[in-house]
């Protein structure tokens, strides 16, 4: 096994009486794409929420590059190098598409706080260029000065992805990055994510679309009712009868 980037240990999370996560243990290897699959309500998004500091677990630790992230502020976790792309697009609807990408680029360059009230935007040409390049890569170049709030849902997802990618995180957490996208855009995103993999960015990807999962993932963990019921390579998962029963209701993968 290679270098472990993220190590989730004994994580428990309950909401009232609901056991959303039960004793989760998961190691993510550097440079790999690790898919987490499972039925609706399995706890996949909750797991990511715990990783990026949106939710505090009842028990357990999340170690990113050897450092425990539990109790750290979301912006500190971001600067540590773990970045999340949300399931429901979380963008800045009142800003332009370009500005939406410039904001995370500024965060990456300037840190959690920078009093740049007397710098002009013109002095940030490098940030603008970098953001434009990412948008181009994701096929959003033509409309960069439009309001982000008026984009289609699929475009919003691509915008979110650009916002994550522009920060060049060491670990990118993707929560259903292709939901709401057309087949064409989905394939495009798969290609893009493969490309980035070659650049050595580690990724966790949550997906319902098995086409996406099996064309991307190096490893797959299956979550059902807050527990990891299987882990392995795509081939191992494909042939695992427990997974077929829990997740696919017996349907052929």
């Amino acid at each position: 096994m290679g270098n472990i980037v993220l190590s989730i240990k004994n994580v428990d999370k309950t909401f009232g009486g609901l056991h959303a996560l039960g004793d989760i243990n998961l190691d993510i290897e550097e440079g790999k794409i690790h898919a987490i699959i499972g039925p609706n309500g399995a706890g996949k998004s909750t797991l990511l929420n715990v990783c990026i500091g949106r939710l505090a677990p009842d028990r357990g630790t999340v170690e990113f590059e050897g450092k425990n992230m539990i109790g750290m502020e979301p912006y500190e976790i971001n600067h540590a190098g773990m970045v999340r792309v949300f399931q429901t697009p979380e963008i800045f609807p009142d800003l332009s598409i370009l500005q939406n990408v410039m904001i995370p680029a500024l965060a990456k360059r300037d840190g959690v706080f920078n009093f740049d009230a007397f710098k002009s935007m013109a002095s940030n040409a490098d940030i603008e260029e970098q953001s434009t390049r990412i948008l181009e890569e994701l096929g959003l170049k033509s409309q960069t000065h439009d309001h982000a709030g008026s984009m289609s849902r699929g475009d919003k997802r691509r915008l979110e992805l650009s916002m994550g990618l522009v920060q060049h995180p060491r670990l990118l957490l993707l929560d259903e990055p292709t939901a709401g996208m057309s087949r064409h855009d989905t394939n495009r995103t798969i290609d893009l994510l493969k490309q980035i993999k070659e650049r050595g960015m580690t990724k966790i990807i949550i997906e319902h679309d098995m086409h996406v999962v099996f064309s991307l993932a190096d490893r797959i963990s299956v979550l059902a009712q807050g527990r990891i019921i299987a882990q392995g390579t795509p081939d191992e998962i494909r042939g695992n009868p427990r997974v077929q029963e829990a997740y696919l209701g017996g349907a052929e993968l």
Binding site: E73, Y75, I91, F92, A107, G111, V112, F113, M163
Partner: peptide
């Protein structure tokens, strides 16, 4: 103003 929560996860205090 547009989305304060998102700012936190984007790396801004």
């Amino acid at each position: 103003k547009s989305n304060q929560t998102r700012m936190l996860y984007t790396g801004f205090n």
